[in-house]
């Protein structure tokens, strides 16, 4: 490209079509740089999937507070998640049945998830997943206290 420019400068009387339009070379250079940038930073669009939920918050209006609240405590025992509902240990399948029963009986169900401090996020995400399956929208977390290992 540089050589061409030199030649072009040396032969101003050159009659070729491109040399009479030297801006083409700058444009091509810019195009090349832009393309290089896009090629180097290129990444395919990866659409992540999501689970939408709403954090339950009592607004102080009695009618909104009168919903059934279900507390699930998550533990991680021997690399297996254990879900306690009313102090009874459930696995994920039974938990799904429990949510389905609760939804069939009451219209508004709020699930509150408590957990041991070191429980991995994936175990709690299973509860969110089962809530989505049962069409329970409001799911919140019960914060742990630093003084105790578990809230239960």
């Amino acid at each position: 490209m540089l050589l061409r420019r030199k030649n072009m400068a040396a032969n101003p009387e050159d009659e070729s079509g491109h040399d009479s339009r030297p801006w083409v070379y700058f444009m091509v250079d810019c195009f090349m740089l832009i393309t290089e940038f896009f090629v180097l930073t290129f990444q395919f669009k990866t659409e992540e999937v999501i689970l939408p939920h709403k954090l339950p918050g009592c607004t102080g209006i009695p009618s909104q507070c009168m919903t059934e609240s279900l507390t699930v405590h998550v533990q991680h025992v021997n690399d297996v998640p254990v879900y306690q509902v009313l102090r009874e240990p459930y696995d994920q399948t039974r938990l799904a049945d429990c949510f389905a029963r609760a939804v069939s009986q009451k219209k508004n169900v709020i699930v509150r998830v408590s957990y041991d401090k070191a429980v991995p996020w994936s175990d709690v995400m299973n509860v969110f997943n089962e809530c989505s399956r049962a069409r329970i929208q409001q799911v919140g977390l019960v914060p742990t206290h630093d003084s105790s290992e578990s809230t239960h």
Binding site: I50, H53, G57, A118, V124, L141, P143
Partner: peptide, 22 residues
Amino acid sequence: PMYEVEKVVATCAKAGLVNIHY
């Protein structure tokens, strides 16, 4: 671990962000 996750959720809740997409 959940003790780290709850900090993020608590921060969002404190800011008024209750519509969460996990």
